[in-house]
């Protein structure tokens, strides 16, 4: 089942959600990969690229599954990157749920029917949840406690559950789940970058949890490595080192403003209720307790060694 075995022709890769941040990062790498023959993009918009074969699929539609199956079986692909995920909570929670959970369900069904050799799904280290009872380093087998206040994270946890069940049903397939630490970089946009890009960043007074960050280049590299890795399962993809949130804020060129917890909470809830909230309320948990994931498995099994320190990733945010 190894796609990179010798004698095999050049690779044909399918990608959903190619216009998102992950898709953009990955496509530029695949474009330069000489082993990649063509990229089948299953998305609603056509991305740039010489190798791109575009096939319009809307994952939120009821017929998405059959379209996907057709597209994948018409000409077999060597790997499917399912990257059609949101990068932060959106106001329309039900649409997000349709896209992430139902969309993933469709993709998994199509992947099972077309007997794909390899499936790569991105996730977040946020699915572990920021809890007081987290160990210093969360390994891949730690419980996914998620964040009960956040539909976004809950959806991600649900997606992870689906993918795990799928992997257990299809032991002959390589199913890789990459749990990314907050991706930081000049060209990505997610709650973490939005949070850090403010000139003054509110934090919880008396708490300074450790954060990890992943430079966007490292994220792209990890996605690319997943194409050939002889491994299956979940991997924490994290940058080098950890930093307290205040240090991260300072590195990003902003100033931390410690606010007493109740005040901060009330303010954030008010903003959210008014509709002006730029910061998700769930972020409160993540700036309260540490959620440091251990990238050891990605290093040993995936061969992913981050090049960038969190510090550099945060500083890259400042330069943009």
């Amino acid at each position: 089942m190894d796609v990179s075995r010798p004698g095999k022709g050049r690779l044909r890769i399918a990608v959903t959600g190619a216009s998102g941040d992950y898709g953009r990062l990955l496509l530029s790498r695949l474009d330069q990969d000489p082993d990649v023959e063509s990229i089948l993009v299953l998305d609603v918009v056509r991305p740039e690229g010489d190798k791109v074969e575009f096939h319009r699929v809307d994952l939120t539609r009821y017929d998405a599954e059959s379209e996907l199956t057709d597209a994948l079986t018409e000409r077999p692909v060597d790997a499917l990157y399912h990257l059609a995920f949101l990068f932060g909570p959106i106001r329309n929670g039900s649409l997000a749920h349709e896209l992430e959970v139902i969309g993933t369900m469709n993709v998994l069904t199509a992947a099972g029917r077309s007997r794909l050799p390899r499936l790569v799904v991105p996730s977040l280290t946020a699915v572990y949840g920021a809890r007081g009872n987290n160990p210093a380093m969360l390994r891949e087998d730690s419980a996914l406690q998620g964040c009960p206040h956040s539909r976004f994270v809950t959806d991600k946890v649900e997606v992870e559950g689906q993918v795990r069940a799928f992997r257990e049903r299809h032991p002959d397939m390589r199913v890789l789940v990459l749990r990314f630490a907050p991706v930081l970089g000049p060209s990505v946009d997610n709650p973490a970058t939005r949070f850090l890009k403010n000139p003054v960043v509110p934090t919880l007074m008396g708490f300074d949890p450790l954060w990890q960050g992943l430079h966007e280049e490292d994220a792209a590299r990890a996605l690319h490595l997943a194409l050939r890795a002889d491994a299956s399962g979940e991997f924490n993809i994290v940058g080098r080192g950890v930093m307290p949130i205040s240090g991260l804020i300072q590195q990003a060129g902003a100033r931390p403003l410690p606010l007493p917890g109740p005040l901060f909470r009330a303010g954030l809830h008010t903003l959210d209720a008014v509709g002006a909230g730029t910061l998700p309320v769930a972020l409160l948990d993540y700036i309260h307790y540490s959620w440091v994931a251990d990238g050891e498995r990605a290093e040993s099994a995936l061969g992913f060694i981050p090049l960038h320190h969190v510090k550099d990733a945060a500083a890259a945010l400042k330069r943009s």
Partner: peptide, 8 residues
């Protein structure tokens, strides 16, 4: 919680 620090 404003100490920063990069070498933790």
């Amino acid at each position: 919680g404003t100490g920063g620090g990069a070498n933790l």
